[in-house]
Simulated scan of single mutants.
Amino acid sequence: MDGKKVILAEPRGFCAGVRRAISMVEQALDYYGPPVYVRKEIVHNHHVIRALEGRGAIFTSSENDVPEGAVCVFSAHGVSPEVRGNARGRDLRVLDATCPLVSKVHQEAQRFARAGRTILLVGHADHEEVEGTLGEAPASTIVVESVEDARALDLPPDADVAYLTQTTLSLDETAAIIGTLRERFPALAGPATDDICYASQNRQNAVKALAARSDLVLVVGSANSSNSVRMVEVARNAGTASHLVSNVEDVDVGWLDGTTAIGVSAGASTPEFLVDQLVDRLVELGYDGLEIEETATENITFTFRPVWQTEEVVQP
């Protein structure tokens, strides 16, 4: 069939927080030499993790698995005060790669907790970001995962409540949950600005635009990447078939039957070379037209001091 094309989303791929976090691990490896320990996955992409492991990074499930006195990087998703305390107790050389936008949510949780409010944390309970934010005020925080959870909250209408959200959620789904909370709690307080990060918003908006022009949307990202999974959901909710692929080998050519326009995007923790490989494969399959769907321009960067100036625990 003639006229087959790929429509490539812009923006896509790495966000500022991901670039900052990866750079911190790379700089730590350059400065200290391997091994450098990283608590959890620095970002949720298997290709990034394997590349850093190849340079000498060791990923652990807990700060308690890091040898005493060793260099330990906290992931972009943030950690609880308990984790920080454990790291201090082990005399770890801590480098904090928490995304500044996640740190903002932590600060908001602290503020609402000091004010005596019950915090309704909209997000996925098993996600590392939510675990970290919940840890700021565990006794006064309730995780709300769905509209059904919001309706089932056992709190009076005049309860002194505030909401916060995970930064990588679906805009539409989150709006529905917050709308339900506002109906139930008229005095509901919230953050000064939206917690869902600019990168998640931009990538979801771009996917909506792709869905309107494509027969199929492919999102490159790992299955444990919340923002990548949300992008697939956004495309499907817009009425277009969509699949998450971690790399080009995941593509089922049967998905392409009857399609002439395929939209391609990537989650905020996905390296660009994976997108290039996917586009090359689609060209081989006859989708040799290429168009760019640009919905936003991103020029945000998050800087950080050199690692030797950022240790939270400095060894004598």
Rank of each mutant, 00 (worst) to 15 (best):
residue 210 L to V: 07
residue 102 V to H: 13
residue 41 E to R: 00
residue 38 V to H: 00
residue 64 N to F: 15
residue 226 S to G: 01
residue 8 L to C: 04
residue 159 A to T: 09
residue 314 V to Q: 01
residue 89 G to V: 08
residue 103 S to E: 11
residue 14 F to T: 06
residue 119 I to G: 05
residue 46 H to T: 08
residue 314 V to S: 09
residue 169 L to E: 14
residue 157 P to F: 09
residue 302 F to D: 02
residue 144 V to C: 11
residue 274 L to D: 14
residue 262 I to W: 05
residue 188 L to Q: 03
residue 26 E to K: 05
residue 189 A to N: 04
residue 301 T to H: 09
residue 178 I to G: 13
residue 207 V to T: 15
residue 242 S to H: 04
residue 117 R to K: 15
residue 112 F to Q: 12
residue 184 R to N: 03
residue 79 V to R: 13
residue 151 R to A: 08
residue 141 T to S: 07
residue 139 A to K: 04
residue 211 A to S: 13
residue 146 S to C: 14
residue 20 R to V: 06
residue 166 Q to D: 09
residue 83 V to K: 08
residue 231 M to C: 13
residue 233 E to G: 15
residue 257 D to Y: 15
residue 148 E to N: 14
residue 254 G to C: 05
residue 151 R to F: 10
residue 62 S to H: 14
residue 314 V to C: 14
residue 63 E to K: 02
residue 127 H to M: 05
residue 178 I to Y: 01
residue 199 A to F: 10
residue 264 V to D: 10
residue 241 A to Y: 01
residue 73 V to Q: 14
residue 171 L to Y: 06
residue 133 T to C: 02
residue 3 G to V: 02
residue 191 P to E: 10
residue 4 K to T: 11
residue 136 E to C: 03
residue 28 A to V: 09
residue 19 R to W: 11
residue 235 A to H: 11
residue 129 E to R: 00
residue 168 T to G: 09
residue 219 V to P: 06
residue 138 P to F: 00
residue 274 L to F: 06
residue 281 R to M: 14
residue 6 V to Y: 11
residue 81 P to E: 08
residue 153 L to D: 12
residue 274 L to I: 13
residue 158 D to V: 13
residue 28 A to C: 08
residue 1 M to D: 03
residue 230 R to P: 04
residue 139 A to R: 15
residue 220 V to I: 01
residue 305 R to E: 12
residue 128 E to Q: 08
residue 313 V to W: 05
residue 284 E to T: 09
residue 188 L to G: 00
residue 132 G to I: 14
residue 199 A to S: 10
